[in-house]
Design a protein around this nucleic acid. Sequence first.
DNA 1: GTACAACCTCAAGTATGGTTGAGGTAAAGC
DNA 2: GCTTTACCTCAACCATACTTGAGGTTGTAC
Lengths: 144, 144
Amino acid sequence: MGRDFTVGEVAQRSGLAVSALHFYEAKGLIRSHRTGGNQRRYDRDVLRRLSIIRVGQELGIPLAEIGAALATLPHDRPPALADWQQLSEGWHSQLEARITLMSRLRDELTGCIGCGCLSMQHCPLINPDDKLANDGSGPRQLLR
Amino acid sequence: MGRDFTVGEVAQRSGLAVSALHFYEAKGLIRSHRTGGNQRRYDRDVLRRLSIIRVGQELGIPLAEIGAALATLPHDRPPALADWQQLSEGWHSQLEARITLMSRLRDELTGCIGCGCLSMQHCPLINPDDKLANDGSGPRQLLR
DNA sequence: GTACAACCTCAAGTATGGTTGAGGTAAAGC
DNA sequence: GCTTTACCTCAACCATACTTGAGGTTGTAC
């Protein structure tokens, strides 16, 4: 029933290494308070933060950006439901966007498998400069 | 109608930096032959390889692994349709798998937004150790 | 035949996301 | 009260994926 977690407990519950927790703290993504003996103690909400971090990383979002998102949470009071909801919704949109993107990529790839685009004349995946000759084409147009 | 591309031409068509092309060649992901004056010349199929590389990277596959996949292509003859198809199908499956994964993640997140899991007692995303206390839980069970 | 862009190699540097190790302190069990 | 495990800081190291720069060569255009 302890209100606080030690770094080891957080590591176990989150599946992250202690060194990673230190690292995230150094980067300002999570916070801790200290005991008299200078040991870290974490509020329970750190687990939510870590989950947000993980999801963000899975989306390929750099830690700095994830940190910026987390920084919108209140520092003074424990985050309320609405705070988490707002963040989750943002992540949710990013997930949606990424799923859409990857589905498009998958469909292109499917097309390319079927189309016999060995000729390399028409396939948008293989031959991206056909239509967008300038501005650094590549599969970029698909991927970003 | 030139059979071969210079490194600059490949860079422009692929949208990649010349330095990246050198880098990929050093890592064995692409190949070139040389002019009498030691300048690189590329066969047209290098563009396909680069597309495969890009898609793989978008999937978060490390270059070494992408290289391994590309290494299954023939070195001696220009790759045939079937060769590309095989690779594309592998990539396609990975895409499918990743889309499925992300959809699940999205659904979990949706659930978490609605469920008011502030209590942190039941949410699988926030409180992953509820059910898998051991073996390094975290959102890992969801993400991998 | 000469200028200038594009090319060459190789070493070093950059950014991200951590891990590892040394040297020392805190806290929990007995 | 002592031992053992967990914790502390800080600097250095690692891997991935490239970019940058120095110093020199090639190839094309005029």
